[in-house]
Protein backbone atom coordinates (compact mmCIF):
# COMPACT_ATOMS: atom_id res chain seq x y z
CA UNK A 1 0.00 0.00 0.00
CA UNK A 2 1.27 3.39 -0.89
CA UNK A 3 0.23 5.00 2.37
CA UNK A 4 2.80 3.79 4.84
CA UNK A 5 1.42 4.96 8.15
CA UNK A 6 3.41 4.93 11.33
CA UNK A 7 1.12 4.71 14.29
CA UNK A 8 2.48 6.88 17.12
CA UNK A 9 1.82 6.50 20.84
CA UNK A 10 -1.01 9.01 20.84
CA UNK A 11 -2.71 7.50 17.82
CA UNK A 12 -1.40 9.92 15.26
CA UNK A 13 -0.22 9.02 11.79
CA UNK A 14 2.82 10.31 10.00
CA UNK A 15 3.15 10.14 6.25
CA UNK A 16 4.34 12.21 3.34
CA UNK A 17 1.99 14.66 1.69
CA UNK A 18 2.71 13.10 -1.72
CA UNK A 19 1.69 9.73 -0.42
CA UNK A 20 -1.50 10.82 1.23
CA UNK A 21 -2.61 12.73 -1.85
CA UNK A 22 -1.68 9.79 -4.05
CA UNK A 23 -3.64 7.45 -1.80
CA UNK A 24 -6.70 9.67 -1.99
CA UNK A 25 -6.41 10.16 -5.72
CA UNK A 26 -6.09 6.54 -6.62
CA UNK A 27 -9.50 5.76 -5.13
CA UNK A 28 -11.19 8.74 -6.65
CA UNK A 29 -10.88 8.22 -10.40
CA UNK A 30 -13.56 9.78 -12.55
CA UNK A 31 -13.52 8.04 -15.92
CA UNK A 32 -14.69 9.58 -19.15
CA UNK A 33 -15.60 6.68 -21.45
CA UNK A 34 -14.81 7.53 -25.07
CA UNK A 35 -16.65 4.57 -26.54
CA UNK A 36 -16.61 4.05 -30.28
CA UNK A 37 -16.93 0.33 -30.99
CA UNK A 38 -17.46 -3.23 -29.81
CA UNK A 39 -15.16 -2.89 -26.77
CA UNK A 40 -17.98 -0.78 -25.34
CA UNK A 41 -19.85 -4.00 -24.57
CA UNK A 42 -17.03 -5.10 -22.35
CA UNK A 43 -16.90 -1.67 -20.79
CA UNK A 44 -20.59 -2.02 -19.87
CA UNK A 45 -20.04 -5.34 -18.20
CA UNK A 46 -17.02 -3.94 -16.40
CA UNK A 47 -18.80 -0.94 -15.00
CA UNK A 48 -22.00 -2.70 -13.97
CA UNK A 49 -22.59 -4.65 -10.79
CA UNK A 50 -20.99 -7.97 -11.70
CA UNK A 51 -17.42 -6.75 -12.10
CA UNK A 52 -18.07 -3.62 -10.08
CA UNK A 53 -15.44 -1.08 -10.99
CA UNK A 54 -16.66 0.92 -8.01
CA UNK A 55 -14.40 -1.19 -5.81
CA UNK A 56 -11.56 0.83 -7.26
CA UNK A 57 -13.31 4.13 -6.88
CA UNK A 58 -13.59 4.39 -10.63
CA UNK A 59 -17.22 3.63 -11.33
CA UNK A 60 -18.87 6.94 -11.85
CA UNK A 61 -18.50 7.95 -15.49
CA UNK A 62 -18.57 11.66 -16.16
CA UNK A 63 -20.03 12.57 -19.50
CA UNK A 64 -18.11 15.75 -19.82
CA UNK A 65 -14.32 15.59 -20.02
CA UNK A 66 -14.10 18.71 -17.86
CA UNK A 67 -15.19 16.71 -14.84
CA UNK A 68 -13.11 13.63 -15.53
CA UNK A 69 -9.52 12.72 -14.82
CA UNK A 70 -9.23 9.36 -16.56
CA UNK A 71 -9.86 9.07 -20.28
CA UNK A 72 -11.00 5.55 -21.13
CA UNK A 73 -10.55 5.17 -24.89
CA UNK A 74 -12.73 2.19 -25.73
CA UNK A 75 -12.88 0.97 -29.32
CA UNK A 76 -11.56 1.63 -32.79
CA UNK A 77 -10.43 5.19 -33.42
CA UNK A 78 -10.75 6.24 -37.04
CA UNK A 79 -8.78 9.07 -38.54
CA UNK A 80 -12.01 10.96 -38.90
CA UNK A 81 -12.72 10.99 -35.17
CA UNK A 82 -9.09 11.44 -34.07
CA UNK A 83 -9.30 15.26 -33.83
CA UNK A 84 -12.29 14.90 -31.51
CA UNK A 85 -10.41 12.50 -29.25
CA UNK A 86 -7.57 14.97 -29.01
CA UNK A 87 -9.97 17.77 -28.22
CA UNK A 88 -11.62 15.73 -25.47
CA UNK A 89 -8.19 15.03 -24.02
CA UNK A 90 -7.27 18.70 -24.10
CA UNK A 91 -10.48 19.64 -22.31
CA UNK A 92 -9.64 17.52 -19.29
CA UNK A 93 -8.03 19.21 -16.30
CA UNK A 94 -4.70 18.09 -14.88
CA UNK A 95 -3.93 15.67 -13.38
CA UNK A 96 -5.25 13.29 -16.02
CA UNK A 97 -4.55 9.80 -17.23
CA UNK A 98 -5.34 7.92 -20.43
CA UNK A 99 -6.17 4.23 -20.64
CA UNK A 100 -6.10 2.48 -24.02
CA UNK A 101 -8.82 -0.18 -23.80
CA UNK A 102 -8.48 -2.97 -26.38
CA UNK A 103 -5.97 -3.64 -29.16
CA UNK A 104 -7.66 -1.19 -31.51
CA UNK A 105 -6.63 1.68 -29.29
CA UNK A 106 -3.21 0.19 -28.47
CA UNK A 107 -2.03 -0.45 -32.05
CA UNK A 108 -4.97 -0.25 -34.42
CA UNK A 109 -5.49 -3.99 -33.91
CA UNK A 110 -6.30 -5.90 -37.06
CA UNK A 111 -7.54 -2.71 -38.72
CA UNK A 112 -4.26 -2.10 -40.50
CA UNK A 113 -5.92 0.07 -43.12
CA UNK A 114 -6.50 3.54 -44.49
CA UNK A 115 -9.24 4.40 -42.01
CA UNK A 116 -7.89 3.52 -38.57
CA UNK A 117 -5.46 5.28 -36.26
CA UNK A 118 -2.56 2.88 -35.67
CA UNK A 119 -2.45 3.35 -31.91
CA UNK A 120 -3.90 6.32 -30.05
CA UNK A 121 -0.45 7.06 -28.64
CA UNK A 122 0.22 8.74 -31.97
CA UNK A 123 -2.32 11.36 -30.84
CA UNK A 124 -2.47 11.49 -27.04
CA UNK A 125 -0.10 10.20 -24.34
CA UNK A 126 -1.19 6.83 -22.91
CA UNK A 127 -0.59 5.63 -19.33
CA UNK A 128 -1.90 2.08 -19.46
CA UNK A 129 -2.37 -0.22 -22.45
CA UNK A 130 -4.91 -3.01 -22.03
CA UNK A 131 -4.66 -5.55 -24.85
CA UNK A 132 -7.42 -7.92 -25.90
CA UNK A 133 -10.11 -7.94 -28.52
CA UNK A 134 -12.03 -7.13 -26.44
CA UNK A 135 -10.16 -7.44 -23.14
CA UNK A 136 -11.81 -9.48 -20.44
CA UNK A 137 -13.10 -7.37 -17.55
CA UNK A 138 -10.44 -8.98 -15.33
CA UNK A 139 -7.77 -7.68 -17.69
CA UNK A 140 -9.24 -4.21 -17.48
CA UNK A 141 -9.38 -4.41 -13.70
CA UNK A 142 -5.71 -5.33 -13.69
CA UNK A 143 -5.05 -2.33 -15.91
CA UNK A 144 -6.99 -0.05 -13.59
CA UNK A 145 -5.02 -1.41 -10.62
CA UNK A 146 -1.78 -0.72 -12.46
CA UNK A 147 -2.99 2.79 -13.10
CA UNK A 148 -3.78 3.13 -9.39
CA UNK A 149 -0.23 2.13 -8.56
CA UNK A 150 1.04 4.67 -11.02
CA UNK A 151 -1.15 7.38 -9.54
CA UNK A 152 -0.22 6.54 -5.96
CA UNK A 153 3.51 6.33 -6.56
CA UNK A 154 3.90 9.26 -8.87
CA UNK A 155 4.87 12.80 -8.03
CA UNK A 156 1.70 14.64 -7.09
CA UNK A 157 0.81 18.13 -8.18
CA UNK A 158 -1.61 20.04 -6.05
Amino acid sequence: MALKPLLGDDNFVTTRLDQVIGWARKFSIFPYPFVTACCGMEYMSLSSSHYDLDRFGAAFPRFTPRQADMLFVVGTISHKIAPLLKRVYEQMCEPKWVVAFGVCTCTGGFYDNYATVQGIDTIVPVDVYIPGCPPRPETVIQGVMMLQEKIANGKQDW
Binding site: H79, K80, P83, N113, Y114, A115, V117, T122
Partner: peptide
Amino acid sequence: ILMYEPFEGHPLRRDYPIERRQPLIGP
Protein backbone atom coordinates in the same frame (compact mmCIF):
# COMPACT_ATOMS: atom_id res chain seq x y z
CA ILE B 1 -19.84 10.58 -46.98
CA LEU B 2 -17.48 8.25 -45.06
CA MET B 3 -14.06 9.79 -45.54
CA TYR B 4 -13.18 13.36 -44.62
CA GLU B 5 -12.95 16.10 -47.21
CA PRO B 6 -9.12 16.45 -47.29
CA PHE B 7 -8.76 12.73 -48.07
CA GLU B 8 -7.12 12.18 -51.46
CA GLY B 9 -8.10 9.32 -53.73
CA HIS B 10 -10.64 6.57 -53.29
CA PRO B 11 -9.61 3.93 -50.76
CA LEU B 12 -11.44 0.85 -52.10
CA ARG B 13 -9.89 1.15 -55.54
CA ARG B 14 -7.49 -1.70 -55.94
CA ASP B 15 -4.66 0.61 -56.92
CA TYR B 16 -4.97 2.64 -53.70
CA PRO B 17 -1.64 1.87 -51.94
CA ILE B 18 -2.38 -0.43 -49.04
CA GLU B 19 0.14 1.32 -46.79
CA ARG B 20 -1.00 4.83 -47.55
CA ARG B 21 -2.29 6.71 -44.48
CA GLN B 22 -3.81 10.16 -44.57
CA PRO B 23 -4.51 11.08 -40.95
CA LEU B 24 -6.04 14.42 -40.09
CA ILE B 25 -3.69 14.64 -37.10
CA GLY B 26 -0.70 12.53 -36.15
CA PRO B 27 2.11 11.02 -38.23
